[in-house]
């Protein structure tokens, strides 16, 4: 028995090592992909004029960022934006999976809600900001609302098409095993839809960042967007470029984190 157990577990141990290796290779290749950007920044640093009012070299950006950090503004702004984006993604995922799942499961609901959702989906999120500010006021709820409004659709649409492409045999197996509605949702639907949902979230994440920054710029609510706009209004080019780098890194890290989560979550399904 011991011998057979060991031989059964061996491939699993090997698989997890392979997966870790795979993840490391992925991270390395992602960093490798950033090399042209790093080269460009180095070139800029070497050839750029440190006194240029419009194109200050990266060292000037760093100095400006350090100043913002020591004045205690940068870190809270990053955290604020991150908090808005993360919370909005959680809400958008919950709503998108719920509504998308129902629409995918019920053709009648799809007919009833389809055109309305299609109309709402085509509204550009920036145009929602003034409307939401009028109705809800300039506060965190409004910000959350507009980000969710933008991030909802990819999750919703992916979930709907995921439900529609569930294999009938899987659903019949669940029926013939007489699983209750709750067990069907938690044990069959959600795990089966996980790849579709996660793809939706990954598409939604950059949208959430865009709209979050936009809302901050339009309303000057605390966050990276407000910091960026203030720097621009003060003609502080170095800080603008510096904050732009922070925004880029923010998106890059968020996307990498989601990709790692996706790869980890889908490992048991053999789809990572």
């Amino acid at each position: 028995m011991i011998a057979t157990n060991a031989s059964a577990q061996a491939p699993i141990g090997r698989a997890s090592r392979q997966w870790a290796l795979h993840a490391a290779v992925n991270a390395a290749s992602a960093l490798q992909g950033l090399l042209p950007l790093i080269a460009l920044l180095l070139l800029w640093q070497v050839l750029g004029d440190p006194r240029s009012p419009y194109f200050p070299p990266p060292s000037a950006w760093a100095a400006a960022l350090i100043e913002r950090t020591s004045s205690g503004e940068l870190l809270p702004a990053v955290l604020m934006t991150f908090q808005s984006v993360a919370m909005a993604l959680v809400v958008a995922t919950a709503l998108g999976v719920g509504i998308g799942g129902l629409i995918g499961a019920s053709p009648r609901l799809a007919r009833c809600l389809g055109p309305t959702l299609e109309f709402l989906r085509t509204l550009p999120p920036p145009t929602i900001v003034p409307v939401a500010a009028l109705i809800v006021g300039v506060n965190d709820t409004m910000k959350l609302f507009v980000i969710v409004f933008a991030a909802l659709w990819p999750v919703l649409l992916n979930t709907t098409s995921g439900v529609r492409s569930l294999h009938p045999t899987l659903l019949e197996a669940a029926r013939s095993l007489q699983l209750g509605p709750l067990a069907r949702i938690t044990k069959i639907f959600l795990p089966a839809l996980l790849p579709s949902i996660l793809t939706g979230v990954r598409v939604a994440a950059p949208l959430a960042i865009i709209v979050s920054l936009l809302a901050e710029m339009l309303t000057l609510m605390p966050g990276l967007g407000a910091l960026l706009l203030t720097a621009q209004r003060n003609f502080n080019a170095a800080e603008v470029f510096g904050l732009l780098t922070v925004v880029g890194a923010f998106g890059f890290v968020l996307n990498a984190a989601l990709a790692a989560f996706e790869s980890w979550a889908l490992k048991p399904q053999g789809r990572s």
Binding site: T169, L170, E172, L177, P191, A192, P268, Q269, G270
Partner: peptide, 17 residues
């Protein structure tokens, strides 16, 4: 209850996760 079905298409009847 008391009845169990086995499908031809095991690839879709099993939970791959």
């Amino acid at each position: 209850p008391g009845m169990a079905m086995v499908f031809q298409d095991y690839g879709h009847a099993l939970l791959m996760w």
